[in-house]
Design a protein around this nucleic acid. Sequence first.
RNA 1: UGGGGCGUAGCCAAGUGGUAAGGCAUCGGGUUUUGAUCCCGUGUAUCGCAGGUUCGAAUCCUGCCGCCCCAGCCA
Length: 560
Amino acid sequence: MSETPSRDFIRQIIHDDLESGKHSEIVTRFPPEPNGHLHIGHVMSICLNFGVAAENGGRTYLRLDDTNPGKESKEYVDAIKNDVHWLGFDWEDRLTHASDYFGELYESASRLIESGGAYVDSLSADEIREHRGTLTEPGRNSPYRDRSVEENMDLFRRMREGEFGDGEHVLRARIDMSSPNMNLRDPALYRIRHIEHQNAGDEWCIYPMYDFAHTMSDAYEHITHSLCTLEFEDHRPLYDWFLDQLEPPHRPRQIEFSRLNLAYAVTSKRKLNALVEEGIVSGWDDPRMPTIAGMRRRGYPVASLREFVARAGVTKKDKLIEMGVMENCVRETLGEQAERRMGVLRPLKVVLTNYAQDQVEMMEAMNHPARPELGTREMPFSRELYIERDDFMEDAPRKFFRLKPGGEVRLRFGYIIRCDDIVRNESGEVVELHCSYDPDTRSGTGSSDRKVKGTIHWVSCEHAIDASVRLYDRLFTVVNPNAESDFHSVLNAQSLETVEAKLEPSLGELPVGQAVQFERLGYFCADEKDDAPAARVLNRIVTLRDSWAKLEKQAMQEQG
RNA sequence: UGGGGCGUAGCCAAGUGGUAAGGCAUCGGGUUUUGAUCCCGUGUAUCGCAGGUUCGAAUCCUGCCGCCCCAGCCA
């Protein structure tokens, strides 16, 4: 009866550590650098770090890894806090910065110097690179590698005092220039940067490097499990080296897992930034962006994002997850939550020739077919309506059970109508349909149980409200744009289409932040930036599954 | 051609010597006033390949192949 849920390897390690008594409390951290916006890959890390701690009654720090001033800024810090919060995670009083520990870090570095574990190098950056060797050749020791402890201490102190210019000296760990692991070839620990820091101000002109700052910050915060992505795997020997040398009272353990890649999307900071800078998208929060801000603005519910990363799993295998998995997660949560409405994206006018000129009937429509407690609303029905252009086809195949010449279709929550005439413009395009309705088929009256195969959505012309609706598609045309040398060649030119839609009147009050389903079309929400009461702007979050579109596509392919 | 990591169905993923879970997708079928939802059913997976150990291997051993990461005073 007690089926043991299969745990991912990290949760298994944590479970074992708790059971063996190695740890009595789990402490994790999510450590983004505030130099860019968070994206879907970070969602994975956030859910893992906060999730694993919460599941075990532990704690999680939100730590801004701000050791490289000049690249980092307060705006990013604020955006990151906002994003993590939106995802539903609470760091309580555990918002920290690597820069909060600059003092401790300086002390730790000094101790390292005293014990001979670090030295001040005065080679230039280029010279250091030359000395580093290559993947297959060992590096060479710097001529400054054997300075005395006293000299190193003096130099390091003076570096801090601001006596030297940027790049004049650097503090390096003294490990092994011939190590096959490049990270162990005397990595830099501190560099001189006469630049203001977004959090520490102008207190410092030397700043610690990632490996040192990150390891020690983990130790200072008593992090038990330091979870990071695979590319840091060969940094772990260095991580452990710092801990061995400095022997902090709490010893964290670094564990690596694979990043989550989303098909048809890029997540590298450089590429995301280029999309914004080059104006290919409207900003970091463009609804096509895989950033948290973008997905939020697009209308993806938090629950769907969490479900998505849960489905992706935690392993060490590189993964490229299909866009469909994300979309299905969104459909699942919205399908249950979102109220139903009607909207016509590409309107085609229909005149009901046998319907009284100024008659208006109020049709009762369910807000959710599976949740009657969500109630109903009324939709005005009149002689002139809009239907979806796609719901009419002149030369329809037999499988097309929507409106066709002489054919019948049910108007959802309305009447059954028959298409009698087609009105065309000078160039022959269909601009209007003349139809007749069957008065005995009013929805819900039960006066006629006549059935027709198709049901389509509609909106009353006179009562409809106008809206610009943005239809989004993937930003790239290839499944893994990350692998492309130049992503510009694989951009999807059709990733955004804006249509002027006609919506049922109740949509005039749709609040920003609330998603609705347009029946038969998909899920939509008001755009948090561009929507205005007088000029509604909606985003299509995701389409509904569309088996007709699939059939059409197959038919097209069969025809060649 | 140095080091580290990874290879189970289209995409994820369990499995840790006893004869391949599950999810998503796919493909059938049923219900349906959303071609949605829902419900049923559906997979010859050479467990990267080749050897070996064993009564028995996805699991252990050896060799090979493929993919990813590392030569920032970035993180």
